[in-house]
């Protein structure tokens, strides 16, 4: 079992797994996003207080939940990378970081657009909104720190530590509405007991959450494949996969990517 899991530390195995998984994620994402969003925006009944404005929930809630989910996934990648020294774990970490950042941004953006007509304000510095904004900054920090290093293994370690430290923010976001007085309402579906939303409104929401999750997986795997190929450009398995690569071509790509990253990769290869 451990041996089997450990085999994914190898870039070629991880690349293969991503290739196998991508079509599944793609199909689930496309089908559930189409069904969920059409159902939610077109057919679910309006809310008794908010009327049709509540429909933004079908974008807002999935993006907010999965911004946190993606963060946890990124931190798990960082943990595996640092403790077990998997290169592929850091590649996963940096592949999911921008995707999670975009999700966080979408949740903040749609939240503002919901807040203006319903609450009467675009923004308020309450605990929920502020901690979600911090999540966005954490994502941007991880991405910025990773890009600051030329040696990508070093970059992975440094930004991995940052990613793990930031996990503390996740329970704070979730419980902010319970621990403190906030303008943001409490949890609707992620609470113990019955969700406080009518079933015909809940189903499209759940389908949208599945769709968003699959979409994040899909995009992340594509990004991870690219990252693996770029980092392993000089290894024989990549050359074999893309057919014959002449030494001249290799040298040209060397120039495009800049020399320093390659030397560290070559050092690793030895």
């Amino acid at each position: 079992m451990w041996k089997w899991i450990n085999s994914f530390a190898k870039p070629e195995k991880a690349h293969w797994l991503a290739t196998v998984l991508i079509p599944w994620f793609a199909v689930v994402a496309i089908v559930s996003l189409i069904v969920g969003i059409t159902w939610g925006l077109g057919f679910a009944p309006p809310d008794y207080q908010q009327g049709d404005s509540f429909r933004i929930i079908y974008i807002h809630v999935p993006s907010a939940i999965l911004a946190m989910g993606a963060y946890v996934a990124m931190a798990v990648g960082a943990l595996v990378g640092i403790v077990w020294q998997w290169r592929t774990a850091f590649m996963f970490m940096i592949a999911i970081a921008p995707v999670g950042a975009v999700m966080t941004f979408i949740s903040l953006f749609t939240g503002s657009f919901w807040g203006k007509p319903m609450w009467g304000t675009w923004w308020i510095w309450d605990a929920r909104l502020t901690s979600q904004l911090i999540l966005l900054f954490l994502y941007l920090g991880v991405i910025a720190l990773y890009s600051a290093f030329d040696d990508k293994q070093q970059a992975g370690k440094a930004s991995g530590v940052m990613a793990m430290v930031g996990v503390i923010n996740i329970p704070i976001i979730h419980y902010s509405v319970e621990w403190w007085n906030t303008l943001h309402q409490g949890a609707t579906i992620t609470k113990i007991g019955k969700p406080s939303i009518a079933p015909d409104m809940l189903w499209p929401l759940l389908i949208c959450i599945v769709g968003f999750a699959a979409f994040i997986g899909w995009v992340t795997l594509i990004r991870m494949k690219n990252e693996i190929v770029i980092r392993d450009m000089h290894r024989p398995w990549v050359a074999k996969m893309f057919g014959v690569v002449t030494p001249q071509k290799l040298r040209r790509s060397d120039k495009i990517l800049g020399g320093t990253a390659q030397t560290s990769e070559q050092r690793e290869a030895k």
């Binding site: 207080q49 009327g51 009467g120 939303i197 009518a198």
Partner: peptide, 27 residues
């Protein structure tokens, strides 16, 4: 100088709200 509305975490169709809570949705 500013009044904001807070809404709760319950979402339901107007008919159900009328039945359960006796609240009638008026625009």
């Amino acid at each position: 100088h500013e009044v904001l509305a807070k809404h709760d975490e319950e979402y339901m169709p107007p008919e159900l709200a009328e039945q359960l809570k006796g609240i009638k949705h008026v625009k």
